[in-house]
């Protein structure tokens, strides 16, 4: 019972969770030692050199510079050590996601919407398999939110206007808190969720049980037609528009002479701000879909275009 009150009693369950916990303990021990030493000295001096006490006060240190150099150097070395330690783990936390299993997260006031590639959608919950890195692609519908799973020792802001990819991985099955950590308005404190880490078999079963009639890409495909995108971007069209088959992940020459890789961000920008990066050889005639579709639909469209990556144009 009392153990639950001790912070970090439960080990972090991400691959680097143990490292973060060790760092925390290291910081805790180091600062307790420093604080202890300091309080001890202050107490000692206060008692020994109190005004009424008749002790030797002669010959107090007149030249101070070697002390100064001493503790300045000591602090500096200790601090640089801590910096390197923290930075090393930090780079591990935010390593570039391996493009393995992608799950999409849309944050909006005041809920987390999660879409799995198979089309499974959930709100305020994220089911994931254990021991397998999951690449979260996060977007915000409105204000800045922050995706925070204490048990995974992980947090990242979700800023409107762009995609944020992070990799998460849990090593033990369980239900873990998901908090919004960046203040986002009235019900910020209720923007809670749950991360459910499951054994692979359970996860597969969950996916199957939740499976909707269509996958995310299929939903995107339907939307693609419904919004009229297919009118220009498909083969039989009379309007000259770039074909999307085999596009994803390839370099795209732009009208201004530069080149971009057709990644999630490029596709997103091209749908919302079609005139910002026009592919070479095409007229800037595509209308903007800004305000006409939300982040969730955007993700479906991107998933659909992604699914065309392997199709021969």
């Amino acid at each position: 019972m009392w153990r639950q009150w001790i912070p970090f009693w439960h080990e972090g369950v991400s691959p680097y969770g143990g490292d973060v916990d060790l760092l925390f303990r290291g910081l805790l021990v180091a600062s307790t030692l420093v604080l202890g030493l300091l309080l001890f000295l202050i107490l000692l001096f206060c008692i020994r050199y109190r005004a009424g006490n008749d002790v030797d006060r002669e010959n107090h240190e007149a030249k101070s510079w070697h002390w100064e150099i001493g503790w300045t150097a000591a602090s500096l070395v200790a601090f640089l050590g801590l910096f390197a330690w923290g930075a090393a783990i930090f780079l591990k936390i935010y390593q570039t996601p391996a493009d393995d299993l992608s799950v999409f997260v849309v944050a909006q006031q005041w809920m987390w919407k999660v879409q799995h590639p198979g089309g499974q959608a959930e709100i305020n919950a994220l089911h994931m398999p254990i021991n397998r890195p999951v690449n979260l692609v996060m977007a915000s519908q409105d204000v800045i939110h922050s995706f925070f799973i204490p048990a995974l020792r992980l947090k990242h802001d979700v800023v409107p206007g762009r995609y944020q990819s992070i990799e998460i991985e849990a090593m033990r099955p369980g239900h873990y808190h998901l908090f919004c950590a960046e203040y986002c308005g009235t019900d910020h404190a209720r923007m809670l969720g749950e991360v459910v880490a499951m054994r692979p078999a359970d996860y597969a079963a969950w996916l199957a049980q939740q499976a909707p009639s269509s996958s995310l890409a299929q939903q995107g495909s339907a939307l693609f037609r419904q919004l009229g995108c297919s009118g220009c971007h498909e083969g039989s069209s009379s309007i000259h528009a770039p074909r999307l088959e085999g596009l994803y992940g390839k370099p795209v020459p732009l009208s201004d002479g530069s080149t971009v890789i057709a990644d999630d961000k490029y596709l997103r920008d091209s749908i919302l701000l079609p005139r910002s990066q026009v592919a070479a050889g095409y007229q800037p005639v595509m209308p903007s879909f800004e305000g006409r579709i939300d982040e969730a639909q955007l993700l479906q469209l991107v998933a659909y275009i992604k699914s065309l990556a392997t199709v021969k144009p």
Binding site: S255, L273, R275, S276, V278, P284
Partner: peptide, 8 residues
Amino acid sequence: RTGQDAHG
């Protein structure tokens, strides 16, 4: 303004 650079 519309066009390629409108937002910029």
